[in-house]
Design a protein around this nucleic acid. Structure first.
Lengths: 288, 288
DNA sequence: GTTCCGCATGAATCGATAG
DNA sequence: ACTATCGATTCATGCGGAA
C-alpha cells in the first residue's frame, strides 16, 4: 500500500528511500537553487550541486513508474558576471545515470522581477527539463490544448463591440457564451514555450513558481487518480494543483515551517473542493 | 587596415585566420546545426560537432575586441526520442577555451514549424548564447528599449483591430507608424526573451532567422560605424541588418551560391539606403 | 486604397519502409 | 543491426489576387 495525499517532513533523500519502487506517475519539482553565498542557510554550493543532486535523481528514477515523467523546473543564476553551468552539467550527468532528456520546455515569465543591471536584462525564463525513463511514456496532449493563435482576428473581429466587451469582462471563469462555443472547435496543441505570469507574493511566502506551472504539466502527464510527487514541496503549490485536478500527491519538505504552510494551504484547497462536493478523505492506494 | 563591408567566400576557419587580432566589435552567427541541412551544407555529425567547432570559436575569440560580444544562435534537434546534448557540451567546452558564458537569450519563434507527435510538442524556441571575452563588455541597453508596460491596455485599446494586427506584425525593423509615435514616452528595457516570427519564404530564398534577430543584438552590442562579423553568413541577413543600421560587416560563406544571393540582397539594401541619402562606398578601416 | 481570402511554406519530428 | 529516405501530421505568417 502507498500512503498518498500527505506531506512528509524530512530529508529528501532519506524519505525517498522509504518509498517503494515504481509507485509514482509523475514528478514535478523546483529544487533549491545553487548558491555560493554563505548567508543563505540551505543553499547548495555551485561546485557540489551535481554531486548533491545525483543520489536524489537516482531515487526519483527508482520510485517513478517506467512510463512516467519527471519535470524539473530550474534556472541557473548569474554569478561573477556569468551564467552558472551546473544545470548543463546536471543534464549530462542525469543522462549518464540512465535518464532520457526528452525535452526542454521554456517557462516564459510574462511579468518577471523588475530590475536593471549593466551587463544583462531581466531574466524572464526558466527551464522545465522533461526527463523520462523510457522513450515510450504517457502524455495526454489533448488536456492542454489551447484556442487558436489567430482566433482573435478570425472570430472576434466579427463580433460587435458590446459582445466583445461582455466577453472580455468574464475573465477567469472562461469566456462569454459566444466565444465559448468556439472553444473546442479551433483548439490547437501548444508548443514547448509556456507563457505564464508569476504570482504575486501572498502574505510574505511566495512560491518559486505559479500554480499554473505544475497544473499544466500535471494535466499533460497524468490522469485523474494518478500519484504526483514533489520531492522539494516548499509551500505546497504542487499539492494544491493536485487537489484541484483530482490527482493524489506526495510532498517531501525538510523545513517544518514550510510543511505547516503547505498543510494550511492544502486545507483551504480541500475545503474549497468539499463545498463543491468533492471528498477529501485520506487515501491508501494498492500498488499494482 | 581592415577591409570591411564585404563577403568573403571560403572555408570559415581559413578565412578567420587571415583576419587580424581584435578587429571585430561584435559577432553574430547561426552555424550549421548538427545533423541538419545535409543537402545544402556538409552536415556536421553530432559526435564531431564540438571538435569541429572549437578551432573556429578560438579564432573568433582572437579576432573579437576584448570588450566585444559574440552571440551564437543555435538549437539542438530531437533525435531518437531525446534532445541532442552537443550544444550543452559546446558551452562547457567554450568556457574551458576562455569564453565567458555571459547570458542565454531565448528566441521565441511565434510561428514555429507545425506537426504533431506522441511525445513532444512543436519546438518554438532557439538559444541565443551570449559569450564575451571579459566581464566588462560594451552594451547599449537604451538602443533596444521598447514601449511596454500597460501599452496594450492604455494605448492599443484605442486602435482598431486591423491597426493592432498591422503593428504587431512589424517586429524588429521598427514599429508601425502609430506605435512609433510613442517611442520615448513609456519605454522600458526588454528581457532576455525575444518574441519574433520566422520569415516565411513565399518567394525565393529564406533565411534561417528573421532580420529582426541580428538587428536586435547589433543594436544592443554595437554603435554606428562598428564592425560586425558573421562567420556563417548564409544568405546575408546579418549583413543587411548592418547596412540598415549603418554598421560595417564582414561575412564569411563557403558556398558561392549563397555568396551570390547575399551580394544580390546587399545591393538591394544599399540601393534602398542610397535613396534615403546614405552612402555605400567601400570602406577600409584603420585598426587602432 | 482597403479588406478579405486562398495558399504556399518553413533549421520539425516520428514511424515505417527500403538499402 | 544500422542508416537513408519518405509520407503524414500541423499552423502562424505574408504575399497575391479578388471583391
Amino acid at each position: 500500500m502507498l500512503e498518498v495525499d500527505r506531506i512528509i517532513q524530512g530529508n529528501c533523500l532519506n524519505v525517498l528511500k522509504s518509498l517503494p519502487d515504481a509507485c509514482i506517475d509523475f514528478i514535478f519539482t523546483s529544487p533549491p537553487y545553487a548558491d555560493n553565498r554563505k548567508k543563505t542557510y540551505d543553499g547548495i554550493s555551485t561546485k557540489r550541486y551535481v554531486e548533491w543532486y545525483l543520489p536524489i535523481s537516482d531515487e526519483l528514477k527508482r520510485v517513478l513508474k517506467p512510463e512516467g515523467s519527471f519535470v524539473l523546473n530550474i534556472k541557473e543564476r548569474a554569478a561573477d558576471g556569468e551564467r552558472q553551468t551546473y544545470v548543463l552539467e546536471l543534464i549530462l550527468a542525469m543522462r549518464k545515470q540512465g535518464w532520457l532528456w526528452t525535452e526542454e520546455y521554456i517557462w516564459h515569465k510574462k511579468n518577471c522581477y523588475p530590475g536593471k543591471w549593466p551587463n544583462r536584462f531581466r531574466d524572464a525564463w526558466e527551464r522545465c527539463l522533461h526527463f523520462t525513463r523510457q522513450k515510450q511514456f504517457k502524455m495526454y496532449q489533448e488536456a492542454v490544448m489551447m484556442p487558436m493563435g489567430n482566433w482573435k482576428e478570425k472570430r472576434l473581429a466579427k463580433l460587435s463591440d458590446t459582445d466583445r466587451i461582455r466577453d472580455e469582462s468574464k475573465v477567469g471563469s472562461g469566456f462569454g457564451k459566444n466565444v465559448s462555443n468556439w472553444l473546442g472547435k479551433d483548439n490547437v496543441y501548444p508548443t514547448n514555450v509556456l507563457h505564464l505570469a508569476t504570482e504575486c507574493a501572498n502574505r510574505g511566502h511566495s512560491a518559486s513558481f505559479p500554480i499554473s506551472l505544475p497544473t499544466w504539466f500535471i494535466k499533460l502527464f497524468t490522469q485523474e487518480g494518478d500519484v504526483v510527487l514533489d520531492p522539494f514541496m516548499g509551500s505546497g503549490t504542487t499539492a494544491i494543483a493536485c487537489i484541484k485536478l483530482k490527482r493524489h500527491y506526495i510532498g517531501i519538505e525538510a523545513k517544518k515551517e514550510y510543511c505547516d504552510l503547505a498543510l494550511e494551504s492544502i486545507e483551504k484547497a480541500k475545503n474549497g473542493h468539499k463545498k463543491a462536493g468533492i471528498t477529501d478523505k485520506p487515501m491508501s492506494l494498492r500498488l499494482l
